[in-house]
């Protein structure tokens, strides 16, 4: 079982990385860019068949380590 975990900064928290990328894109002539936010993708491979229990485990992984709830949100995307 494979999964992708998408970790993004909470909307209420400034994203200086996204801001720098946005400025660079504007400099490159992409003036239509309104906002950029940078996050990260974590790919996890599990030795586990059940989607349900995999998802449960991934939820725990995110809460314990993969994301920091003070500043980040996460989404889990299961892949077969």
């Amino acid at each position: 079982m494979k999964a992708k975990v998408l970790v993004t900064r909470k909307k209420s928290i400034a994203d200086p990385e996204g801001h720098a990328v946005q400025k660079a894109l504007t400099q490159l002539g992409f003036d239509q860019v309104k906002n950029v936010r940078v996050g990260k993708i974590i790919e996890v491979e599990l030795d586990q068949q059940s989607v349900h229990s995999s998802k449960e485990q991934l939820q725990q992984m995110c809460e314990k380590l993969l994301a920091n709830p003070v500043m980040e949100n996460f989404e889990i995307e299961m892949q077969s």
Binding site: A14, V70, M71
Partner: peptide, 17 residues
């Protein structure tokens, strides 16, 4: 200490990166 929850808040990247 913030990651462990022994102190409140968190430390983000410096504003000027």
């Amino acid at each position: 200490l913030t990651e462990m929850g022994l102190l409140p808040g968190t430390l983000l990247k410096n504003k000027n990166l």
